[in-house]
Design a protein around this nucleic acid. Sequence first.
DNA 1: ATTATCTATAGATCTATAGATAATGC
DNA 2: ATTATCTATAGATCTATAGATAATGC
Lengths: 194, 194
Amino acid sequence: MGRSSREQADKNRLRVIDEADAALRSGGAAAISIADIMARVGMTQGGFYKHFSSREALIAEACVSGFGRSVETWTEKAAAASRSVRGSLGRLVQYYLSKKPIERSCPMVALGPDAAPHLASRELNVAYRLGVETLFKTFTNIAETDPSCSLSQKELAFAFAAMVGANMLSRATGDARWADAVEEILVERTEHSR
Amino acid sequence: MGRSSREQADKNRLRVIDEADAALRSGGAAAISIADIMARVGMTQGGFYKHFSSREALIAEACVSGFGRSVETWTEKAAAASRSVRGSLGRLVQYYLSKKPIERSCPMVALGPDAAPHLASRELNVAYRLGVETLFKTFTNIAETDPSCSLSQKELAFAFAAMVGANMLSRATGDARWADAVEEILVERTEHSR
DNA sequence: ATTATCTATAGATCTATAGATAATGC
DNA sequence: ATTATCTATAGATCTATAGATAATGC
């Protein structure tokens, strides 16, 4: 097999990023093996460096991509109709904390420990910070346009941290207690003032 | 240098666990290199396997040790006198979310992603679950004996998740916003009923 | 002619083991 | 005699690079 068309090469690049994103969400940065990911895309490791300058560069790009995907999903889930939960923020919380395949977690949780400045490349740390900032902005935007929610900025930061912490704890322990408590309280708290 | 005394060997074993605990808190399971840790203790890697059956076994033991240390610290901090915060639960929250050296984080956060059942050894997953359970028990015990705190069990689980999430987010992003919001709200909420 | 991908490999890890060494403990 | 530790190394990674190959794009 020889060279791909420019168009195909661009698609291959995106597939590599998608696979890296999936691996990151499953096992953090430690789960990124260039040979593995290239094999999953159907290529060999040698081709990797025509697309990315280093493993670190791929991780940072996958982080950007993962957060981008989360922003989209959050917006969709908040907007979606739901019988059980009336407010859009409540719907987002319910989606975020409902049992999902454990192998594909939120990038905030999957990358949290790896993204700290003393461990991550500068690129990854920047991508993570920007990603969290963007997701929180999405969160507050949804809250502001939700008439059933009247939380202050500080209370929103609190709720956001609780959501993320509960996700991490329930995922790691397999005990839904954390996710359930946060979901119930936040859904109630964004509806009782309607 | 030849053989150590039985007493010295036991001390060496504990020093290996302490170094592993420090490495775990700094960089998660990925930061555990047997040669590194043994060198830090002043030994060579060959001696490792007289003390531990495998790298995974050391990680699990370090996890147990780390949680044990946290339980002790939490109890001390809650009991300590403080001018600024009156309730013992508030003191614990303040300690847990105050700026600490980023290199020595809470085991719940440092090991969270590594401890999930599809990634960790069974030993590590069990140690993590037990550790979280014990820390939450410590948390609720402190809350129950604190007359300024009247949170329900569900609200305590919520507060606990918020604390952990804020710790992870502030540590990873370097932005104290999450820690500050959770600290202020929880300290206020455990005092306004006094 | 250019270049995306492949094959092959250098160099640097890291875990675990085997056998040697020397101090302990009886 | 026993055993905690050391030296040395096998075997298995993994990242990154060099040079070959073959299809694209002009």
